[in-house]
Amino acid sequence: MKLKKLTALGTAAVMLACMAGCGTAAEEESGFSVAMITDTAGINDQSFNQSAWEGLQEFSKASGVEVNYLESKQSADYVTNLERLGDSDADFIWSVGFDTADALVEVAANNPDLRYAIVDNSYEDTPDNVTGVVFKAEEPSFLVGYIAGKTTTTDHVGFVGGIENAVIRQFMYGYEAGVSYAAKEMGKEIQIDVQYAESFSDAAKGKAIASKMFSEGCDIVYQAAGGSGTGVIEAAKEAGKYAIGVDRDQAYLAPENVLTSALKKVGKAMSIVSEKVMNGEDFGGQTLSFGMAEECVGIPEENPNMDPAVYEDAMKIAELIKNGEITAPATEEEYTAFLESLK
């Protein structure tokens, strides 16, 4: 009898504590606030989710705006997380990753008064309260491909992808085009090996594939493979060859073996858009594209392992891309057409 009472008391105590939490929702009008949800890769994926959050944090520091995030563990979390953010006092909600596209459409339709944006996705029919933000990842990839082509001494380079999808294909075709362009410039043939790790989280697989490429004669391997890609960089470190990083400056992983990185400044683009929305602009129903011209993709300024002459040449190519004289391909058709134009 006593124990039953105790249990009842205990359960009641726990419930009271929870209810107490419910009561403290005094909404403070604290001004503009921005929030984001990650896709299932998580906030610490050392790739675009992390870049997105870092960008938002910088934006917060610079403008005093409150920022927060919700991490999604499964694809079914996208809707629930977006809804939860909608309940909080966030004024502008970011949905990071093309995986979240369908969930966002549903939530945006349910909450027509809230404003959303999505990273890495362009809809055929963008809802009125959603802004699509895409990146021309083929542009920095073209640049690093060009650099690889100019730097290789064995005329043999490689590319390791995570899992094949539209975004990774941007990286791949852009890179291949850059290598081909450099090859044409120097009047020689450069072989490009391509292999997929079928995972964004198997570093050992990435390392094994890169080791194979290095032992077959490649001296530079570019990776767009997330967690598997760190294995590629590791292989370069151990083989004494070069790797090219992606999304963020990955030189810190192997200071002597990372030639350069193809930067996709997700955070910067998000800051730009968030600031404009905060100042009253409305991009609902549109897709914004960020490339070199907008300074949201590129390569790091400091590349200790790169030949300064190659860097100079690369900057000239960057200008050509910015003013439209070179259009980096992002799909198979565009790449085939690009190769034709080189002939």
């Binding site: 504590a17 929870c18 939490g21 419910c22 403290t24 929702a25 809804e83």
Partner: peptide, 25 residues
């Protein structure tokens, strides 16, 4: 700790749709 547990409880019980989401999950 107390605020955290309270936040946990709030996140589960404070709105009907949260309870619904728990059931769905």
């Amino acid at each position: 700790p107390a605020a955290s547990i309270a936040a946990l409880g709030k996140g589960i019980f404070s709105k009907p749709k949260y309870i619904s989401n728990v059931i769905i999950k």
